[in-house]
Simulated assay, not measured.
Amino acid sequence: MRNATRIIGTALTGALLVAAGASQAVAGGNWDYNCSRTSLSNGYLFTCIYTEDINQPDGSSYWKLSDSYKKDRGDTPITAKFGFNYHGYSYEGGWFSQSKGETKDAWFYDLGFNDCSSIVGWLAAQGQSTFHNAPVTIC
């Protein structure tokens, strides 16, 4: 996979908290058909999925996923990373720094989603918690 590291299981350290406002996926996501949005104390976490222009060997589409965080409050910069969980596996990107007024994102490509299972994007902030988004699905 480009830009993604596969981690077996959910070997995340620290307390895992579901952010307030995360709700059940509706028609693919709670924000739009393919996107979910969760309001955090200093901004918004988005997780969106899209089909790619290439197909898997069985003819079904590969998928790409975008996690993004719009930090519009809080003067203290954060160091964080994005990831998502699917079928008991956790995928994550690299660390980044972010200040108020910035939007950061990470893309995960060539994903073989093949059923209606929930895909849960997350943002792990150093020295804080891991914030989970509302689930999205390909259905």
Rank of each mutant, 00 (worst) to 15 (best):
A4Q: 08
T5E: 15
I8C: 01
G9V: 14
G9R: 07
A11R: 00
A11W: 03
A11I: 11
L12N: 03
L12V: 14
T13C: 01
L16M: 11
L17H: 11
L17C: 06
A19M: 03
A19G: 00
A19E: 11
G21Y: 00
G21W: 00
A22Y: 02
A22T: 04
S23P: 00
Q24I: 15
V26K: 15
A27W: 09
A27G: 00
G29I: 09
N30G: 04
N30M: 04
W31H: 13
Y33S: 15
Y33P: 07
N34V: 12
C35M: 01
C35I: 11
S36D: 06
R37K: 06
T38G: 10
T38R: 00
L40S: 05
S41K: 06
N42V: 01
Y44T: 12
F46L: 12
T47A: 08
T47L: 13
C48D: 12
C48I: 12
I49R: 01
Y50F: 09
T51W: 07
D53P: 10
D53S: 15
D53N: 15
D53Q: 15
I54A: 14
N55A: 15
Q56P: 07
Q56I: 11
Q56R: 10
P57W: 01
P57Q: 03
D58L: 11
S60Q: 02
S61W: 12
Y62W: 03
Y62V: 08
Y62G: 06
L65I: 04
S66A: 15
D67I: 01
D67Y: 09
S68L: 10
S68F: 05
S68R: 05
S68V: 08
Y69K: 00
K70E: 13
K70S: 14
K71N: 11
K71C: 00
R73V: 10
R73P: 10
D75H: 05
T76R: 00
T76S: 00
P77H: 07
T79N: 01
A80V: 09
A80W: 00
K81D: 10
K81P: 03
K81M: 12
F82D: 12
G83W: 05
N85P: 00
Y86W: 05
H87T: 00
H87L: 13
G88N: 08
G88I: 03
Y89R: 13
Y89W: 13
Y91D: 12
G93W: 02
G94S: 13
W95V: 05
F96R: 05
Q98F: 00
K100H: 10
G101P: 05
G101Y: 11
G101S: 10
G101N: 11
G101T: 14
T103H: 05
K104P: 11
K104H: 07
K104E: 10
D105Y: 14
D105T: 15
A106P: 09
F108E: 09
Y109G: 03
Y109K: 03
Y109P: 02
D110H: 08
L111W: 12
L111K: 08
G112I: 02
D115I: 02
C116K: 07
S118M: 01
G121R: 08
W122M: 12
W122L: 01
W122P: 03
L123W: 02
A124N: 14
A125V: 02
A125W: 02
A125P: 05
Q126D: 11
Q126E: 04
G127L: 08
Q128S: 09
S129F: 06
T130L: 04
H132T: 14
P135F: 06
V136Y: 04
T137P: 05
T137F: 14
I138L: 08
C139M: 08
